[in-house]
């Protein structure tokens, strides 16, 4: 298959923000083992800004790299800004993905959307 970019390899080798957050403000869990990828994204939000993000991923190299990259992209971004981050933006930030791996970036976007949705649900309940 087509090789991964150097940036993807770097994120596989040294994943950023791996792990989970205790008492997160939002959690997004997406994927299933049938497709081969499962992603969990945890966010901590303060005054409408994502102050911390962590991930856990079961998946291929592209899944790990996109998870890692999405946590980097959303840190210190407002919820509104984070919602604008598309799967393409994640892939571009990694200098691209092999075409057959583009679906992994969709999973990263889905995880992000799910985490924010979870945050908003909790926030409206508490508010």
């Amino acid at each position: 298959m087509e090789p991964y970019s150097e940036k993807v390899i770097d994120h596989i080798r040294n994943p950023r923000n791996m792990g989970s957050i205790e008492n997160p403000d939002g959690v997004g869990k997406v994927g299933n083992t049938a497709c081969g990828d499962i992603m969990e994204l945890y966010i901590k939000v303060k005054d409408g800004v994502i102050i911390d993000a962590k991930f856990k991923t079961f998946g291929c190299g592209a899944a790990i790299a996109t998870s890692s990259m999405v946590t980097e992209l959303i840190k210190n971004k407002s919820i509104e800004e984070a919602l604008k981050i598309s799967n393409r933006a994640v892939a571009e930030a990694l200098d691209g993905l092999p075409p057959i791996k583009m679906h992994c970036s969709v999973l990263a976007e889905d995880a992000l959307k799910a985490a924010i949705e979870d945050y908003q649900k909790k926030a409206s309940k508490n508010g």
């Binding site: 390899i9 596989i12 079961f58 998946g59 291929c60 190299g61 899944a63």
Partner: peptide, 14 residues
């Protein structure tokens, strides 16, 4: 169990 093959393959390749 609990880990995916391609990620193992890439880490082994490294």
């Amino acid at each position: 169990a609990y880990v995916e093959g391609e990620s193992m393959l890439l880490y082994l390749d490294m």
